[in-house]
Amino acid sequence: MSTTAIQPVPFGRRLKRFMADRPLIPLIILLVILVLVLQILRPGIVNERWLANTVKFAIPLAILAGCQTMTMLTGGIDLSVGTVATMSAFIMATQVVNHDPAVAILIALVPAVLIGLVNGIGVGVFRVHPLIMTLGTSLIGTGCLQVYQRTVIASGAKIPPFLAWLGTGLTYGVPNALLLFVPIAVLIVFTLNRTGFGRLLYAVGDNEGAARLSGVRYWQVITALYVISSVLAGITGLLYIGLIKAPSLSLAEPLVLPSVAAAVIGGTSIFGGRGGYTGTIIGALILTVLTTLLTILQMPEGARRILFGLIVLFVTAAYLRIIEDR
């Protein structure tokens, strides 16, 4: 705080402005505080293994939160990521019994592309609210998965060793999952900040009418966006099953609400046009540490959901206040 020059501005205002200008710093402070609280509650818990574990569990959440970040930038949301991730994981695990892993992975990503396409067309062409649209496709997807499960019930499922290696393995104490995550994160950040497509996403979210008038083909942008989001969710599913190692029909469902919360905490506005991926990554780390903390405090699942809901509401409301102040 000492870097800000002495000004005749009340401290509260100054703090608000500071937070609005550099949203990352308060987030990192919050993360450090949470880790400290954890260390105080359970002295010695924070060590190298804990760190690797936290990163491992934060990565799938961070990728899914990346889907939310990109869709939220356009003023949307993608609630089908959980179903898509579950589908691709389950299909991969059952197809790998009969096929080469590479083929199985390709087959597994087909439904992801399809669901993304339907989402994109529904939102971009028919202008259904993204929330309703993605909720609908996730219901249909779950139904399809249940039907599919019947057809493969006899063949069983297995997890290819390299996915397990990627999901759980450590190399010199560093999670292998970072091999997948770092390129994805760099790609998302690069796309959002340095490419035309990224700029279109911000433009559409900031002022759709203006973007349209400047020649942005809205439906094409949105369709591409939801397909990308779905494919990312599918990849997350593949990674997540390597981590959890038990295919089920509700594998990634518990990650949906936290992924929304992580993007919101990370400073991405749910109304579109503002935010970025770096904040989201820290948001995902914060939520993972928070989950550990709540588990240590023996907080039941219900209380955790209540907390996530309140976080989303509180952060959004606070965010609106900060914007209005400027």
């Binding site: 929330l131 609400l257 929304v260 749910i270 039941p300 699942e301 219900g302 209380a303 955790r304 959901r305 209540i306 907390l307 996530f308 809901g309 309140l310 989303v312 509401l313 959004t316």
Partner: peptide, 16 residues
Amino acid sequence: VVTLATLFVLQGAALL
């Protein structure tokens, strides 16, 4: 957004 947040909260309360 508000009802999405209360959706989480009410769901959690139901589980409690």
